[in-house]
Simulated scan of single mutants.
Amino acid sequence: MAPPAPARARPTWRSRLSNNETAVGLLMLGPVFAALVFLRLWPAIAAITHSLSADDAGGGFSLAVYRSLFSDPTFQNALYRTALFSVIVNPFQILLALAIAVLLNRRIALGGLWRTFVLLPVVIPQSVSALIWGVALRPDGPINALLAAIGLPQQGFLTSTTQALPSIIVVVSWVGVGYWTTFLLAGLKDISPSLYEAASLDGASAWQKFRYVTLPMLRRPLLFVLVADTVSNFLVFAPVQILTNGGPQDTTNLIMADIFSRTFVYSDDKGGAAATVILVAVVMLVVTIQFRLMKERGE
């Protein structure tokens, strides 16, 4: 008589989990989903709900805060200054980053050293960069000293109503240009040299190679840089807060600085929440338009 077969051991929960790739993936992504919900979705829903809540005892929803914001000259000025800032700084940073990336992609002397110089501002925290530029742009700072040494009049820079916003643009671009250059340079490295060789055989000039080879092949990195640069410049806060605090005469009062002042200086948390919702809506609208335009040009 044959001996009875040994009883099969019941699989443990660990063995069952290791054999289920979906469960393993969900377990790994669990902390990310939790962080997304508690750090992104929940604050967004709370801001929308709080901005729409009515002040009366009966509760309910109201658009009174939004009507008050859009009729507030300070908020209107913040929207205008942010739009003006974005219209100038986005093309400036992207075009300069593209030019530097094209130059660094060529075989130039001391190419590694130049890449280090371009990327060096990226590793410096934005707040530290703002402090450095704050010293450089002071009325008695080194830049005005240099201007006086060569016989040029001193400039107000951060204390001038006409030069404060351009000065903020320079400070932000000092960091941003190097950062976006890394992505565009990586995209240029992925373009096959055979495309340029074929264009040369067809008698294409340098400009024609750039227009008909480089730009079409660089469309995806350019789209990413365009969208990411737009979002980051809408959210500029530290340089404004450190260097000008929105002044002089609210000429650098960008929308993030206005939200901070409403929420933490004037204790208007409902107005700050409503301004945040408006900012997110504007950013999403601009990004959607950018995606549509880039898609149409790509087709």
Rank of each mutant, 00 (worst) to 15 (best):
L17Y: 09
G58M: 06
A206K: 10
I132T: 01
N90W: 00
V177M: 08
T181I: 05
S86V: 15
T182S: 14
S192R: 10
L185N: 12
A206S: 14
Q76I: 10
V24C: 04
R297C: 13
V65D: 01
S261R: 15
A23M: 12
V225E: 06
P121V: 12
D258F: 13
F117N: 01
D250T: 04
G298F: 09
S194L: 09
Y196F: 15
S86P: 01
K209D: 05
L131E: 11
W180E: 11
L184G: 01
P193H: 04
L39A: 10
I278H: 08
P6W: 00
S205G: 11
W114V: 14
L39G: 02
A109T: 05
I191E: 03
V123E: 04
L79E: 08
V286W: 00
F234R: 01
A199M: 08
P193N: 02
P139M: 11
T263D: 03
T116W: 02
A281C: 02
P139T: 12
I108W: 04
P166I: 10
I278F: 15
A281T: 06
N90E: 09
V286E: 02
I132N: 10
T162N: 11
V240K: 03
R107C: 05
T49Y: 04
A164F: 08
N253Q: 14
L110Y: 02
D202N: 08
L52Y: 03
V213S: 10
A275E: 14
M256L: 12
V282S: 08
A64S: 15
A273N: 10
F291T: 02
L184S: 07
A7T: 04
V122M: 12
S173E: 09
S267T: 10
I150W: 00
T12C: 00
S18I: 06
L201N: 00
D56H: 13
S205W: 04
E197M: 06
S15I: 13
P11W: 00
L113A: 15
Q290C: 01
W174Q: 07
P121F: 09
G178A: 11
N245H: 02
G112Q: 12
